[in-house]
Simulated scan of single mutants.
Amino acid sequence: MNIESLIPLPALCIHYKVELSFFDNLNEMGLLEIKTIEETQYIHPDAIYEIEKMIRIHQELDINTEGIDVVFNLLQKIDALQNELVSTKNRLRLYES
């Protein structure tokens, strides 16, 4: 991946008005992958949607990074359960027909 397609973290800090330590904490918790190239930290553009959710949770709900980790784990479990429910409903329709 070339550097032009990556987003520098300092630009995100300015844009979203958060400190670099917020992204470092997310990285330490495994919620965000940061790439360092020539002493500048970058993220992949595909991570923006999740980052925006994390920033909203942090700023609007005043939840710390540990809380964000819990929220995202619960959201992943909900998503998995919803997928399982859809799959089960589809199998049930086969037997009802």
Rank of each mutant, 00 (worst) to 15 (best):
N2D: 14
E4P: 00
E4Q: 07
S5H: 07
L6G: 00
I7L: 10
L9W: 02
P10Q: 01
I14S: 11
I14G: 04
K17T: 12
V18M: 11
E19W: 04
E19A: 12
L20N: 09
F23W: 01
F23R: 01
N25T: 11
L26W: 01
M29V: 11
G30M: 08
E33M: 03
I34C: 02
T36G: 04
I37Y: 10
E38D: 10
Q41E: 07
Y42F: 06
Y42S: 01
H44D: 11
H44F: 06
D46W: 06
I48C: 01
E50I: 07
K53Y: 09
K53N: 10
M54W: 03
M54E: 09
R56F: 13
I57W: 01
H58K: 09
E60T: 06
D62V: 13
E66Q: 15
G67V: 07
D69T: 15
V70K: 14
V70Y: 15
V71R: 01
F72N: 12
N73E: 15
L75P: 04
Q76P: 03
Q76V: 13
K77W: 04
A80H: 12
Q82P: 08
N83Y: 03
S87F: 03
T88D: 03
N90G: 05
R91A: 09
L94M: 11
Y95G: 06
S97V: 06
